[in-house]
Computed example of a mutant assay.
Amino acid sequence: MKTIFTDWGLTPYAEAWEHQTVLFDTLVGAKLNNEVYENHILFCEHPHVYTLGRSGKDNNMLLGEEQLRAIDATLFHIDRGGDITYHGPGQLVCYPIINLEEYNLGLKEYIHLLEEAVIRVCASYGIIAGRLEKATGVWLDKDSSNVRKICAIGVRSSHFVTMHGLAFNINTDLRYFSYIHPCGFIDKGVTSLQKELGHKVDMVEVKLLLQKEISALLHLD
């Protein structure tokens, strides 16, 4: 089956969620009916928004509705795994809507693959990133007291079809993370490529690198 990469640019979260859901339901339906389908890997950025997963705790959101409006942000309760995270301009979000069985992947292997793609992109900028035991995502200085997350991952899967995905901090305004306990952690930091490198990073370049690494790991043509 064909795998299509699409860049949505800056897209409101509700609109992206709705569009994702349509693509997800279409793929699941086609798979169950043995019909031809397309896999989609979507890139975008969102206006300021917080999303709380199924297993998330409301008290990890530190602001009320009025305070959220004051910082021009919104909050969504959504159907992925994981706790609370932030999306905003300067953060590269990737939503793969793919049939894992086509790639001989289980859910754990798939999450590992997403992490690996981001780890490789970080390496291309000279940044050593890795995994943290019992904490999904991509981390820097994982064995130190200065451990910090550069990419969050939260996935939903049904019939081995995925939606949601990863949020990779490129030129993200990191102040917005101070209003939450990111992914439920209160003792770990958050960072971005821009913060680590000391300069703004070309988002188009990062998208091309991430597409290249995901394609290589999925063995796409």
Rank of each mutant, 00 (worst) to 15 (best):
G64A: 01
F185G: 03
S55I: 02
Y13I: 02
C94W: 08
W17L: 12
K108V: 10
L92Q: 00
P12L: 06
P96M: 15
T162M: 11
T3S: 13
G130Q: 08
G53N: 09
I180A: 01
V28H: 14
P182Y: 02
R175G: 06
T21N: 12
F185N: 00
A135Y: 14
K134Y: 05
L62A: 03
I150T: 05
V118G: 10
A216Y: 06
E102V: 07
K57D: 00
E45R: 03
P89L: 15
N39P: 13
G88C: 09
Y179S: 05
L23Q: 13
G56K: 09
I214W: 14
A14R: 13
D173F: 04
T172W: 08
A129Y: 05
D221N: 15
L92A: 01
H19L: 15
H219A: 13
G56D: 04
D141C: 13
A73L: 01
L166F: 12
V190A: 06
L42S: 14
L32Y: 00
H87S: 09
V147N: 07
K212D: 14
V22H: 12
L42Q: 14
V93K: 04
I97T: 13
I84R: 01
L114V: 12
L23A: 11
H199L: 04
I128A: 04
Y103E: 08
K149E: 06
D79L: 11
H112I: 05
I150C: 11
E66C: 07
G90W: 06
W8S: 10
T26Q: 15
V49W: 12
G106K: 01
N33K: 11
Y86M: 07
A129M: 06
I119R: 07
P12H: 12
M203T: 05
D58S: 08
H19M: 14
M163K: 15
V190H: 10
S157P: 13
D79S: 15
I180R: 02
Q194V: 00
V36T: 08
V36C: 12
P47G: 06
L32D: 02
T162P: 11
H112E: 11
G106R: 01
L218V: 09
I98T: 13
N99S: 10
G29E: 10
Y176Q: 03
F5K: 15
D25C: 07
N60D: 02
P182D: 00
I41G: 10
L140C: 07
L10I: 09
D7W: 10
D202T: 05
L140I: 05
D72N: 08
N146T: 09
G165M: 10
S158F: 09
F185W: 01
Y50W: 00
G106E: 02
L166I: 12
W139Y: 04
K207S: 09
K2M: 13
A70T: 03
L107F: 04
D202L: 03
H164P: 15
F177A: 01
A135Q: 11
L140T: 03
V155H: 15
G126S: 09
R69I: 04
D58K: 14
Y37I: 00
Q211C: 10
M203N: 01
E213F: 02
F160S: 14
Y95I: 08
M1C: 08
D202Q: 08
D187E: 04
E196I: 05
V147S: 11
H48F: 06
P12F: 05
E66Q: 03
V201S: 03
V138T: 10
G53F: 07
D25S: 07
Y50N: 01
